[in-house]
């Protein structure tokens, strides 16, 4: 009974803008019918113009310059998010107590949960020296994705054109900038190389990729060695693709998310835009979490793949 009332109330609430929306749309129809006499070229020009104005620009515009350093709007948001995380971490650890309460309790719960999660992937040995990276990358991507969804992020700025878009929006989602995701992926690959060589040595590293030992002697053994050298070459290509895939996966998801929100907002028209975009907002909150998880998970799995041999050796040594 109550459900029905809520539905009726919702329907009436939605019907109000529908009645209001009737008038401007009929005006538009009239004006369109008046303009039908125009040549086709102006129409195509209009379409082109609309396409250019639609959506987020692929690169982040520069908002101000500090000497030779150009600060783009996504760098600006990066600093805000980083500052927020630092402030929360400082507040949480200002008075560290043995029995945590309040903010310290919450932050410890999050960090310990993350630590246990990464420990289950990379093992108890590696997690001690790699958790700082995976934990930071997860927390930073998660909060920068969610920060980018706050209404007003892309709609504040200056230099408005006739379509109502700002030429220079003040803020932009951090991971909607290819530079940021590429920087994180590149940093990970350098660290990955460092950790791998530290864990299993340069010889072990090459031996892991080109798995040439232990195939026996004779003709079949030599044949297998040749096969595994080619398998190693394929492995090198697969490792080379990893940073590219990491970069474009995160950038593509966040960038596409921003564009989906804007497109759906326009589909809803001037009165229903907020309603049409609502499910996509929830979807983007989920995507922000999943992409942070995916980036941290993939980087940790890549590390574990290369370093797990080392952990096995250690456990065997302990067993002896």
């Amino acid at each position: 009974m109550q459900m029905q009332r809520i539905l009726v109330a919702l329907f009436l609430f939605l019907a109000i803008p529908l009645a209001l929306a009737d008038k401007p749309s009929s005006d538009e129809n009239k004006s369109e019918s008046h303009e039908e006499g125009h040549s086709a070229s102006t129409h195509s020009e209009d379409n082109e113009h609309a396409e250019h104005a639609e959506g987020l620009s692929a690169n982040a515009p520069v908002i101000f310059k500090l000497g030779p350093l150009q600060i783009t709007n996504s760098m600006f948001v990066t600093m805000i998010v980083a500052l927020g995380i630092i402030i929360v971490a400082q507040l949480a650890t200002r008075k560290v107590q043995l029995i945590p309460a309040g903010l310290q309790n919450f932050v410890e719960y999050l960090v310990e949960g993350l630590y246990g999660f990464f420990e289950s992937i990379v093992g108890p040995q590696m997690v001690k020296q790699t958790f700082w990276f995976f934990g930071t990358i997860f927390i930073f991507i998660l909060f920068s994705n969610w920060f980018g969804l706050i209404p007003g992020m892309g709609t504040m700025g200056w230099g408005m054109d006739e379509h109502g878009h700002f030429a220079q929006p003040l803020m932009r989602g951090v991971n909607a900038d290819l530079n940021m995701t590429l920087a994180m992926a590149a940093l990970f690959m350098v660290l990955w190389l460092f950790w791998s060589i530290k864990a299993i040595g340069a010889g072990g590293f090459l031996g892991h990729i080109f798995n040439v030992k232990g195939h026996g002697s004779g003709f079949f053994g030599i044949f297998l060695v040749i096969v595994f050298i080619f398998v190693g070459l394929i492995e090198v290509v697969s490792i080379g693709v990893r940073p590219v895939a990491l970069t474009f996966r995160l950038y593509g998801n966040v960038f596409a998310g921003e564009n989906i929100l804007e497109t759906v907002m326009k589909l809803g028209g001037p009165y229903f835009g907020w309603l049409a975009v609502l499910p996509f907002y929830l979807l983007e909150i989920l995507v922000g979490l999943v992409q942070a998880l995916v980036f941290a998970l993939l980087t940790s799995v890549f590390t574990a793949l290369m370093c797990e041999q080392h952990d096995d050796d250690h456990s065997e040594e302990h067993a002896h």
């Binding site: 289950s120 992937i121 693709v241 590219v244 895939a245 474009f248 996966r249 950038y251 593509g252 998801n253 999943v290 998880l293 995916v294 998970l297 993939l298 799995v301």
Partner: peptide, 24 residues
């Protein structure tokens, strides 16, 4: 829990193809 982890990894790997196709 383990299934979820693996599913996310492999879903991400399958999903990565389309981004490579779009941008490269």
């Amino acid at each position: 829990g383990e299934i979820r982890t693996q599913a996310i990894i492999f879903a991400a790997l399958a999903e990565g193809i389309v981004f490579i196709a779009i941008f490269l």
